[in-house]
């Protein structure tokens, strides 16, 4: 996977990231848990990598399932 064609869902807590991963996978999206890139946050947790072209759909799925998340950032 080339990092330039991906985005990450940033959450406040790892349990939120796992919940996000669960609902996104259930919606058929490709996901991968990864450490939060240091330039995006000083937090020590994980974030959910998605395909950049899935960003709008991912955000819709997260909102529909009321998953708390901070933001989606392109890599």
């Amino acid at each position: 996977m080339s990092p330039s064609r991906h985005a990450v869902v940033l959450t406040h807590a790892s349990s939120h990231a796992i919940r996000a991963e669960h609902v996104l996978r259930r919606a058929g999206l490709e996901t991968k848990l990864m450490p939060v890139p240091r330039h995006l946050s000083s937090d020590c947790g994980v974030c959910v990598q998605i395909r950049a072209e899935d960003t709008a759909q991912a955000e819709e799925v997260l909102r529909k399932n009321r998953v708390p998340y901070d933001r989606v950032e392109a890599l």
């Binding site: 790892s14 349990s15 990231a17 796992i18 919940r19 450490p35 994980v46 974030c47």
Partner: peptide
């Protein structure tokens, strides 16, 4: 340890915790 790192074993543990929660 779930949530304390982003490596695969920590993520597997975090998924186990999520499964229990769900």
């Amino acid at each position: 340890n779930p949530g304390r790192a982003g490596h695969r074993l920590a993520n597997d543990a975090a998924r186990l915790v999520y499964d229990a929660r769900a």
